[in-house]
Design a protein around this nucleic acid. Structure first.
Lengths: 241, 241
DNA sequence: ACCTGAACACCGTTCAAGT
DNA sequence: ACCTGAACACCGTTCAAGT
């Protein structure tokens, strides 16, 4: 029997199929490998066919971010704002962790799509339902910044590259530590203090999830304190001078 | 008299001249316009000549980040850690604001150059000199995240594009607000509450510097509190369960 | 040994020629 | 009217041929 043509050939292209394929391609080959031409190839389609469903590459990336936002759990209608916000941020983080490229994509977007605006609107709603003033909510959103999307700037690269310090000869590793301790004594101290299970050097073994929650809770506790004392930006600006 | 050849022709190329030209080009034409070929043209040099001074484009970007880091004021040797950190972060912010592309460049770098490591080492030193435990310092650095470099994720795009809401007809603006108030009522509330001098809509009129300092101080106050109660990550993890 | 033009293997997107 | 091949105007980087 003859081989069936790939499904991509049979079912007609549509926006969702384009976006889904783009997400898979970015997941598997990395965002730097995502090109209109490569994507078309993956869809078994001529490059220009994609332009029927997204205006250009920018719109493709917007759509991909929308897909990720769609994977974030819904906002809880919960009077306990702290729990609601915390839960949703950690849900966003889970979605982000499934798609390593998403962080960079979100950072690079300048405009905001409808899906993103909806997410933010819901997010703001959690503070307001929790009794926050519009004023404090505004500044809290700014303070959360990218943590609203479940990510933080990493201190050190923990991407591919040094997944295994095992294949570096121990004497070379020792020399590196020696060198680091002279050049960057403070970094070394901090790196050594961070628990590590594998005896590796910098940027390893520190628990990203713990770091994320540490910073998140620090901010949430701060918001709670300000909320409790009826903080207003006007008063804060007066106090500052 | 004959025109002198451009200085670029006469003084031989070196790494610093290449980096300086790249910074100027990115400042003036935007980071998206910075290509090896365009940079070569700006230096009145054949494209391949640049490769004598930087291995590839990645290294060029690394070097450009180093230039910006070099513009940040030195760390203060100040027992008042809070003042020292605050001052330096705001100095970093000034440097960043002079080079709009720098934020994206820093975010995109995975490895860390010597200049960046030095900056971080100095930065850590401010906490240690201030009496912080290595443990708390570690987590504080993570919590600061990109704020260490003087930037935060913007909530809304305030780049070029809507510098003047003036040229949008008022009836169109009114219709947009009407539409927003139905779709994204919470965003609209927050946007309206943010003071604005110019009667514009979303993302305008909110004082970025105030927002930055608000979040920074919230974190610094949090660090101070934890420091005062001899916080340790071990205890925090035990408490969390 | 050093320098560099041409070439290679790509891009995103336009456009006119085909059905 | 729709689709698409070829073309355009770029990329970063390799490499061999020139000095």
């Amino acid at each position: 029997m003859t081989q069936q043509p790939v499904t991509a050939r049979r079912t007609p292209l549509n926006r969702d199929r384009v976006l889904a394929a783009a997400v898979v391609l970015a997941d598997e080959a990395g965002i730097e490998s995502l090109s209109m031409r490569r994507l078309a190839q993956e869809l078994a389609v001529v490059p220009m066919a994609i332009y029927k469903h997204v205006a250009n590459k920018e719109e493709l990336l917007d759509g991909m971010v929308d897909v990720i936002v769609g994977e974030i759990g819904p906002a809880l209608h919960n009077p306990d704002w702290k729990d609601a916000v915390r839960t949703r941020v950690l849900s966003a983080r889970q979605a982000l962790l499934r798609h390593p490229w998403a962080r960079q994509a979100i950072e690079s977007r300048t405009g905001r799509t409808a899906a993103v605006l909806e997410y933010m609107d819901d997010f703001i709603g959690m503070f307001l339902v929790g009794g926050f003033s519009v004023d404090l909510t505004h500044h809290a959103m700014h303070a959360l910044g990218s943590r609203m999307w479940g990510f933080t700037q990493e201190l050190f690269d923990n991407e591919a590259g040094h997944k295994s310090t095992a294949d570096v000869p121990p004497e070379v590793q020792a020399a590196m530590v020696q060198d680091m301790s002279q050049r960057y004594p403070n970094i070394l101290q901090v790196a050594m203090a961070a628990r590590h299970d594998d005896g590796s050097v910098v940027g390893q073994g520190c628990d990203d999830q713990f770091e994320f929650e540490f910073a998140l809770d620090l901010l949430l506790d701060g918001f709670e304190r300000l909320h409790g004392q009826d903080w207003t930006s006007e008063r804060a600006m007066r106090d500052r001078g």
